[in-house]
Design a protein around this nucleic acid. Structure first.
Lengths: 107, 107
DNA sequence: CCATTACATAGACGATCATCTATGTATAGT
DNA sequence: ACTATACATAGATGATCGTCTATGTAATGG
């Protein structure tokens, strides 16, 4: 499994404010000023967070006049769930490579 | 949704080494020395990572003589998937609370 | 007992991070 | 043209993070 991209997603999500932004965008696209209203931090801070989310492939932006409309990347939603399932499944991709691997033992 | 616990899980997962530890443990319990063999960092560093994973509710430890056996918390596997689904679903829990909420608009 | 093994704790250090203020850059309205 | 609005960029700062070395502790074996 490709950790690199998944870790970047996790890092971007591992901030309460960015997680809330993702939650906001899960119901549709919003412009920066709309998002900002839900937070106490400054506008440059939001700009920073949006860039982190874009770099992680979580969010994409469309410019419309003065406004930047942000939306969740559909591909992110799909890939994140897929990577999560793969990570947490006790299946045959087992990394431990030990002869006494306990992958079949329930905990 | 309770961000606090979910964010703590995400933070703990947002490190490539800890993610690999989770992957290793997804196929069964391992002791610290077994886990350490898969990495280049020092033993205290592993001890630190295991504590982070325990504090996040991802891993639990059972002591057996000299050995510490680590396993994934079943509850974590379940709750993490559940929280992820809830976060990324465009359902009625919409936070934006705007009259023109676009939660029904596909992107 | 003493040495070894398995692991934890303490403290330090450099890197990364979230946030801020100050400022720049478009776009829109009058 | 001027002003206001929406957003980005630059640079600074304090906090957090991942890692290390040094050391402590508890269990095991001869």
């Amino acid at each position: 499994m490709d950790y690199q991209n998944y870790v970047q997603m996790l890092k971007a999500m591992a901030d309460p404010n960015r997680l809330k932004i993702i939650d906001l965008l899960s119901c549709g696209s919003l412009c920066a000023c709309d998002i900002l209203q839900h937070f106490d931090f400054s506008q440059p801070t939001l700009s920073h967070h949006m860039k982190v989310l874009q770099n992680a492939g979580i969010v994409f932006a469309v410019k419309d006049g003065k406004w930047q409309h942000y939306s969740l990347q559909k591909r992110f939603v799909q890939e994140f769930k897929q990577n999560t399932d793969q990570l947490l499944a006790a299946d045959e991709h087992c990394l431990c490579q030990r002869s006494d691997c306990e992958k079949d033992v329930a905990n």
